[in-house]
Design a protein around this nucleic acid. Structure first.
Lengths: 257, 257
DNA sequence: CACTTATTAATTGTCGGACAATCCTACCAT
DNA sequence: ATGGTAGGATTGTCCGACAATTAATAAGTG
């Protein structure tokens, strides 16, 4: 055990961080409702008793978390809710940086997706079905591998939407793009992959349309397991680290000397 | 379709955002490896041809994403990987802001956790089992409801750890704290809840210890379904929006006039 | 009076310089 | 080596400034 008379390490966050925390608090506790315009930078500076520069640093933090945003073509920042797309991208990014493997992502999807399909079968609406069919059709009609990969992504996203559970969406969404590069490789190397995926999509749609929760779950299970087989046939090491196809940005700089 | 000779809206992100994007790119593509110290603010300002203030705004963005951090008691920023804790907190936060309901979170956990228990049974190590037992013991020994809730959280986290899948961890982790307040209410209102949870924890540990994947999954399934029954008995509306017990921060300010 | 259009004021993005507090480094004393 | 000290480097914060753009207001027109 530690000694009896210890002191907590003295933590004084810089002003910009504390300001960000305070405003974040007001947003999450709904004191500042969505759509509400923030005070101007100068006004905030006055209220917090700091300079505009300091306020701006705090605002950058809120902005990067998606808690405030600018409506298109406007100047003032308004309170917003983080978009699932942005959040998912951050999580994906983090998983990449943590050297997560294809196997791990595949495994997580194995657990997650079949029950999602089952839910989807119980909750489908006509619009959902249309989305699913559109994605499947796009896959079948794709003339290039990247398009196919994109269509597969859309199929899964449509399924998430059908399951109508936002907590689940945020669990899935970050995982899909992580397998995109492997999937592309696999489609290029395994000739029969395309038809198998197409078949699975059709069967899944049939089951979901029919409200057949068990069938949807089973076909989705087969579908996912097929991915793994495909990876193996394509000689993709399952211990490969996942990656994201990042658009190269212009600009460069030298790391520290 | 739109006319043939249209132009895309000209988007020029402010300098601080572009700088953040460029540095982010260098981090994700490993040009800047973890632990690498960033150049000085002044040096960055020089390289990008902007002022230090602008660089600092960009750095706040990286910092808030956990891509750079300061080692304790040091001044220089170094490249880092986002911690799962921080990421999970952001996702939780977002789910709250999106008015996600107790039902949705519970449902997502229903799908996620039992298979995780199954994985855990196959991968357990002695240290994992120790963690699980420690959490269960802490739960049994808790003298206050908040402590119990905390112990339940630790139990689930230990289980995640045992399953040894980081993609899965990032799917679960954000969900647990969202049910904390409901769980606390439930424990206060439903006398038998405590013993049922304790029993389930013991059974789950037994199954995991024995490497009994099926048993672990089944008991975990029961455990989760029990939560729902508890909520119902405690008269907690399943359509209640989830919330996070936020520590109230000092400081306040007035929204825009 | 409704509706444009022209003026004016307010606000953001960025710049440049400043200073105290703190960290880092190299040097010195024990 | 260990411990302490002086100086330089770096961050957190402040101040003031200005161009570009947006919001607000006044003025003109049908």
């Amino acid at each position: 055990m530690t000694g009896s008379a210890r002191f907590a390490p003295l933590r004084t966050d810089p002003a910009y961080r504390r300001i960000a925390q305070i405003i974040t608090g007001r947003i999450t506790d709904r004191t500042l409702p969505e759509g509400q315009a923030l005070p101007t930078e100068l006004e905030l500076a006055g209220q917090f008793g700091v300079t505009r520069s300091t306020v701006r640093e705090a605002l950058r933090e809120l902005e990067s978390h998606g808690l405030v945003a600018r409506r298109r073509g406007t100047k003032r920042l308004t309170v917003a809710r983080p978009t699932t797309a942005a959040l998912a991208a951050h999580v994906s990014n983090a998983l990449v940086l943590h050297d997560v493997t294809v196997l791990e992502v595949w495994e997580a999807l194995t657990l997650l997706v079949p029950p999602t399909a089952s839910l989807a079968a119980r909750r489908r609406t006509p619009e959902d079905l249309q989305q699913l069919q559109a994605a499947a059709a796009a896959f079948a009609a794709s003339r290039s591998t990247p398009r196919m990969v994109e269509a597969v992504g859309r199929f899964f996203e449509a399924l998430e939407g059908t399951a109508a559970n936002r907590a689940l969406v945020l669990a899935h969404r970050p995982l899909l793009p992580l397998l995109a590069t492997s999937l592309e490789l696999m489609l290029d190397r395994v000739p029969q992959a395309r038809s198998r995926i197409g078949l699975a999509q059709r069967r899944i749609i049939e089951a979901v349309s029919a409200g057949d929760a068990v069938g949807a779950e089973e076909w989705m299970g087969k579908h996912i397991r097929d991915f793994r087989r495909g990876f193996e046939v394509a000689k993709i090491e399952l211990t490969t680290r996942v990656g994201i196809a990042a658009a190269p940005l212009p600009g460069d700089f030298q790391p520290a000397g």
